[in-house]
Protein backbone atom coordinates (compact mmCIF):
# COMPACT_ATOMS: atom_id res chain seq x y z
CA UNK A 1 0.00 0.00 0.00
CA UNK A 2 1.48 3.36 -0.94
CA UNK A 3 1.46 6.42 1.28
CA UNK A 4 -1.46 8.07 -0.48
CA UNK A 5 -3.65 5.00 -0.05
CA UNK A 6 -2.80 4.78 3.65
CA UNK A 7 -3.72 8.41 4.15
CA UNK A 8 -7.10 7.77 2.54
CA UNK A 9 -7.93 4.88 4.87
CA UNK A 10 -7.12 6.70 8.10
CA UNK A 11 -10.19 8.41 9.42
CA UNK A 12 -9.90 11.73 11.15
CA UNK A 13 -8.95 11.47 14.82
CA UNK A 14 -11.50 13.20 17.05
CA UNK A 15 -10.05 16.03 19.13
CA UNK A 16 -10.80 17.28 22.62
CA UNK A 17 -11.68 20.66 21.19
CA UNK A 18 -14.22 19.38 18.65
CA UNK A 19 -17.23 20.40 20.73
CA UNK A 20 -15.59 23.21 22.70
CA UNK A 21 -18.50 25.46 21.94
CA UNK A 22 -20.74 23.27 24.12
CA UNK A 23 -18.53 21.25 26.43
CA UNK A 24 -14.93 20.31 27.11
CA UNK A 25 -13.65 16.88 27.89
CA UNK A 26 -12.21 18.02 31.19
CA UNK A 27 -15.61 19.25 32.29
CA UNK A 28 -17.05 15.82 31.48
CA UNK A 29 -14.18 14.16 33.32
CA UNK A 30 -14.85 16.30 36.38
CA UNK A 31 -18.42 15.01 36.39
CA UNK A 32 -17.47 11.37 35.91
CA UNK A 33 -14.70 11.40 38.52
CA UNK A 34 -17.03 13.09 40.98
CA UNK A 35 -19.69 10.50 40.23
CA UNK A 36 -17.19 7.70 40.87
CA UNK A 37 -16.22 9.24 44.20
CA UNK A 38 -19.86 9.54 45.32
CA UNK A 39 -20.47 5.89 44.44
CA UNK A 40 -17.31 4.65 46.13
CA UNK A 41 -18.21 6.51 49.33
CA UNK A 42 -21.85 5.36 49.22
CA UNK A 43 -23.22 8.90 48.96
CA UNK A 44 -26.00 7.56 46.82
CA UNK A 45 -28.55 10.29 47.46
CA UNK A 46 -25.98 12.83 46.33
CA UNK A 47 -25.25 10.61 43.33
CA UNK A 48 -28.92 10.72 42.42
CA UNK A 49 -28.79 14.52 42.25
CA UNK A 50 -26.37 14.19 39.32
CA UNK A 51 -29.32 12.95 37.27
CA UNK A 52 -31.98 15.10 35.64
CA UNK A 53 -35.56 14.52 36.76
CA UNK A 54 -36.10 12.26 33.79
CA UNK A 55 -32.78 10.47 34.30
CA UNK A 56 -32.59 6.75 33.48
CA UNK A 57 -30.06 4.00 34.14
CA UNK A 58 -29.57 0.83 32.07
CA UNK A 59 -27.43 -2.27 32.19
CA UNK A 60 -28.28 -4.50 29.19
CA UNK A 61 -27.79 -8.26 29.40
CA UNK A 62 -24.42 -9.37 28.13
CA UNK A 63 -25.74 -11.21 25.06
CA UNK A 64 -27.64 -8.26 23.57
CA UNK A 65 -26.57 -5.96 20.74
CA UNK A 66 -25.73 -2.35 21.59
CA UNK A 67 -28.98 -0.98 20.18
CA UNK A 68 -31.25 -3.35 22.15
CA UNK A 69 -34.20 -1.73 23.91
CA UNK A 70 -35.45 -2.72 27.35
CA UNK A 71 -38.99 -2.33 25.94
CA UNK A 72 -38.64 -5.68 24.19
CA UNK A 73 -35.42 -7.30 25.42
CA UNK A 74 -34.48 -8.61 28.84
CA UNK A 75 -31.86 -6.42 30.53
CA UNK A 76 -30.20 -6.71 33.91
CA UNK A 77 -31.28 -3.20 34.86
CA UNK A 78 -33.66 -0.77 33.16
CA UNK A 79 -34.53 1.97 35.63
CA UNK A 80 -36.88 4.80 34.77
CA UNK A 81 -36.64 7.83 37.10
CA UNK A 82 -39.03 6.30 39.64
CA UNK A 83 -37.19 3.02 39.88
CA UNK A 84 -33.79 4.68 39.87
CA UNK A 85 -34.88 6.66 42.89
CA UNK A 86 -36.24 3.51 44.53
CA UNK A 87 -33.01 1.67 43.77
CA UNK A 88 -31.15 4.23 45.83
CA UNK A 89 -33.77 4.18 48.59
CA UNK A 90 -33.42 0.40 48.75
CA UNK A 91 -29.64 0.36 48.67
CA UNK A 92 -29.45 2.71 51.62
CA UNK A 93 -31.46 0.27 53.78
CA UNK A 94 -30.10 -2.42 56.06
CA UNK A 95 -32.65 -4.78 54.48
CA UNK A 96 -30.86 -4.57 51.13
CA UNK A 97 -29.09 -7.71 52.29
CA UNK A 98 -26.81 -8.04 49.31
CA UNK A 99 -25.27 -4.66 50.12
CA UNK A 100 -25.51 -4.74 53.89
CA UNK A 101 -22.88 -4.87 55.21
CA UNK A 102 -21.84 -2.63 52.32
CA UNK A 103 -19.33 -3.85 49.83
CA UNK A 104 -16.24 -1.84 49.05
CA UNK A 105 -16.16 -0.54 45.52
CA UNK A 106 -13.71 1.26 43.28
CA UNK A 107 -15.00 2.88 40.13
CA UNK A 108 -12.23 3.58 37.63
CA UNK A 109 -13.15 5.72 34.65
CA UNK A 110 -10.97 6.10 31.59
CA UNK A 111 -10.94 6.68 27.80
CA UNK A 112 -13.41 9.55 28.15
CA UNK A 113 -14.62 10.75 24.76
CA UNK A 114 -17.15 13.38 23.78
CA UNK A 115 -19.01 11.73 20.93
CA UNK A 116 -21.36 14.52 20.05
CA UNK A 117 -22.65 17.75 21.49
CA UNK A 118 -25.09 20.52 20.75
CA UNK A 119 -26.89 23.16 22.76
CA UNK A 120 -29.32 20.56 24.17
CA UNK A 121 -27.33 17.46 24.81
CA UNK A 122 -23.86 15.99 25.13
CA UNK A 123 -23.07 12.38 24.28
CA UNK A 124 -20.13 10.84 26.06
CA UNK A 125 -18.50 7.42 26.16
CA UNK A 126 -16.09 6.20 28.81
CA UNK A 127 -14.46 2.91 29.68
CA UNK A 128 -14.94 1.66 33.21
CA UNK A 129 -13.57 -0.95 35.56
CA UNK A 130 -15.52 -1.30 38.77
CA UNK A 131 -14.36 -3.55 41.58
CA UNK A 132 -16.75 -4.91 44.18
CA UNK A 133 -15.02 -6.34 47.22
CA UNK A 134 -16.91 -8.22 49.90
CA UNK A 135 -16.60 -11.30 52.11
CA UNK A 136 -13.35 -12.45 50.55
CA UNK A 137 -14.39 -12.07 46.91
CA UNK A 138 -13.28 -9.42 44.47
CA UNK A 139 -15.53 -9.13 41.45
CA UNK A 140 -14.65 -7.00 38.46
CA UNK A 141 -17.18 -5.32 36.22
CA UNK A 142 -15.63 -4.03 33.02
CA UNK A 143 -17.21 -2.27 30.09
CA UNK A 144 -18.09 1.07 28.61
CA UNK A 145 -20.65 3.57 29.75
CA UNK A 146 -22.54 5.77 27.33
CA UNK A 147 -23.92 8.92 28.85
CA UNK A 148 -26.40 11.45 27.61
CA UNK A 149 -25.81 14.70 29.47
CA UNK A 150 -27.79 17.91 29.63
CA UNK A 151 -26.83 21.30 30.97
CA UNK A 152 -29.01 22.42 33.86
CA UNK A 153 -28.32 25.82 35.46
CA UNK A 154 -24.90 25.68 33.86
CA UNK A 155 -24.06 22.24 35.30
CA UNK A 156 -23.86 18.99 33.40
CA UNK A 157 -26.45 16.46 34.54
CA UNK A 158 -27.02 12.84 33.51
CA UNK A 159 -30.08 12.17 31.36
CA UNK A 160 -29.12 8.59 30.65
CA UNK A 161 -26.42 6.25 31.86
CA UNK A 162 -26.11 3.01 29.93
CA UNK A 163 -23.44 0.52 31.00
CA UNK A 164 -22.42 -2.03 28.39
CA UNK A 165 -20.62 -4.87 30.14
CA UNK A 166 -17.76 -6.50 28.23
CA UNK A 167 -18.29 -9.64 30.31
CA UNK A 168 -19.65 -12.77 28.65
CA UNK A 169 -21.92 -13.28 31.65
CA UNK A 170 -22.21 -12.16 35.25
CA UNK A 171 -19.88 -14.90 36.38
CA UNK A 172 -18.74 -15.24 39.02
CA UNK A 173 -20.37 -12.02 40.24
CA UNK A 174 -23.94 -13.29 40.41
CA UNK A 175 -25.36 -9.82 40.75
CA UNK A 176 -25.19 -6.15 39.86
CA UNK A 177 -26.28 -5.10 43.31
CA UNK A 178 -23.99 -2.07 43.34
CA UNK A 179 -24.37 0.89 41.04
CA UNK A 180 -21.90 0.64 38.18
Amino acid sequence: MNAVAIEKTISRIPQATDFAEFVTRSEVEDLLYHEAELLDTWQLNEWLTLFTEDGCYYVPSTDLPRDASSDNSLFYIADDPVRLHERVVRLMKKTAHSEYPRSHTRHLVSNVRVLDANADEVKVAAAFVTYRIKFGSTDVYVGSTHYRLRRLHGQLRIVEKRCFLDLESLRPHGRVSILL
Binding site: N72, E99, G174
Partner: peptide, 19 residues
Protein backbone atom coordinates in the same frame (compact mmCIF):
# COMPACT_ATOMS: atom_id res chain seq x y z
CA UNK B 1 -40.12 -6.82 31.24
CA UNK B 2 -40.20 -3.93 33.66
CA UNK B 3 -42.01 -6.14 36.18
CA UNK B 4 -39.45 -8.88 35.59
CA UNK B 5 -36.52 -6.59 36.30
CA UNK B 6 -37.95 -5.00 39.41
CA UNK B 7 -37.86 -8.36 41.18
CA UNK B 8 -35.94 -10.92 39.17
CA UNK B 9 -32.40 -11.32 38.05
CA UNK B 10 -28.99 -10.09 39.15
CA UNK B 11 -29.99 -6.42 38.95
CA UNK B 12 -33.46 -6.77 40.42
CA UNK B 13 -34.67 -5.66 43.82
CA UNK B 14 -34.98 -9.22 45.09
CA UNK B 15 -32.72 -11.78 43.39
CA UNK B 16 -29.46 -10.20 44.66
CA UNK B 17 -30.74 -10.73 48.19
CA UNK B 18 -31.54 -14.36 47.36
CA UNK B 19 -28.00 -14.74 46.06
Amino acid sequence: LSNFLEFLGPGGFATPDDV
